[in-house]
Amino acid sequence: MLFDWLSFDLLLAIALIALAVAALRARDLFKGIVIFMLFGLLVAIAWVRVHAPDLALAEAAIGSGITGALFLGALSRIERKKKSTAPARLENPVGGSTSGAWTVLLTIVLTVQLALAVLRGWGYSDGLADEALSRIDESGVINPVTAVILNFRAYDTLLEIGVLLLAALGVYAIGEGPTVRNLQRTSRSEVLETFVHLLTPMIVLTAGYLVWVGYKEPGGAFQAGALLGGAGVVLLLSGRELPVHAARPGVRIVLGGGFLVFLLAGLAVMQDRAFLEYPRASAKYIILIIELACTVSIGAILTVLFAGCANLLTTPSEEEGT
């Protein structure tokens, strides 16, 4: 072997820590966010190195994409607001931080303790691997991660979809700032238009593919939903009017659909089984239906969340009014 993978891992680990320091200490928050996105990209590589390709897929879309877009959206909204309220109090140059000695001490003690605990206990038990892997046949799928998410611990996942829905509701409830102008709709450029025309169908196709292969290979509702969310963000940024406002017809159904289908599937099997305990023969199809519904919902929820952060929730008619 030409490459010594161990040294590659060391280099990647050092790069991760260096990027974390650079992002956290950047004087300009904009730079910090950009470095954070770069960090997300490298974390995606780290997931592959610890045998977690499912996570790499999700992280590449979320860690290096959507989270960064959220931060940049919020930042540009705040900067515009600052400019519009003209001289305003120029806030204390908030690179300023209060690092008391106790903060340093607390952090160091906690980190060292954790590291020691890991070094002591490393390699003793194999956790739940045997239990999960030995009963994989009963789950209806082959990819163990999908089996855990949608079958063995489906109850957790149902509630997590619920959390996503709650976050979207929260963003709706927080609503729009009173005086802020909307994100400047980029003047339509041919290049961007063509790109979006080309990209969006590709992303939808890839998302569908990810759901489909999720039963045997890395993929599934969360990765595909993250991709769709990314497509939504790109569409919003390119100046498209997406129906993101809760008053638009169908939006609530799309947002809540994943949770609803999941819940109904759980209830439907309850005739002679426990909640969410799928019959073995049809488990594969039940899981596929739930995943399809959740993919669409997760994508829509992520899009709405971005719209909320970047102040794009207003419907066009409201926009004209202000």
Partner: peptide, 25 residues
């Protein structure tokens, strides 16, 4: 190619926004 075009376009339109955006947010 697209992002390159977008970045260049934005840099051409706002020549005053150089890389030193130290507005310290």
């Amino acid at each position: 190619a697209t992002t390159c075009y977008l970045v260049a376009e934005s840099a051409r339109r706002n020549p005053d926004v150089k890389e030193s955006r130290n507005d310290a947010v």
